[in-house]
Amino acid sequence: MKRRTFLKAGLATSATAVAVSAGILAPNAVFAAYNEAAFKTKTVDEGMSAVFGSAAAADSADIKLKAPAIAENGAVVPVEVDATAMKGVESIAIFVAKNAVPLACTYKFSAGALGFAAVRVKMGETQDVVAVVKAGGKLFKTKSEVKVTIGGCGG
């Protein structure tokens, strides 16, 4: 039994490695076509893997995620990701953790654009907004909780 588990783990690891190298080798990955598959993923980790090829991101204080602590209207929640303090920002993805499809939007940049994106997103309930930034080939993330009070009375 133990040997079997071990083999399975080995297989899974090598599959991930192949996926990562495929991602790196893909030419012109910066401006590829609409990532349909990523927008069908059900969790933040799956979404990150689909967008960036990996779900491992380091927490970073250099990403400034601006989202309201309390949102009166969950249908319009302004979110701003400012990673201009980081060098070589390639892309930004914004996830709303408990949405049916957590991946809300992705932004890819090339020379001439800074690591900054603002958008308004929908969220059904109190939850985390996660910003993932890819800079210099590495992944960084930060998150912020937004309380949604649709009644508008707080609480």
């Binding site: 302004p78 709303v96 992705t106 090339s110 800074l114 958008v119």
Partner: peptide, 30 residues
């Protein structure tokens, strides 16, 4: 897609989780 003098500088992909009458902001050097 945003182009500066014809060169793409930013591509955004959105899902239906972006709010109605959406707002978008980004920064470019130019």
């Amino acid at each position: 897609t945003a182009k500066l003098n014809g060169t793409p500088v930013m591509v955004a992909e959105w899902s239906g989780a972006v709010s109605q009458n959406p707002f978008l902001a980004f920064k470019v050097t130019g």
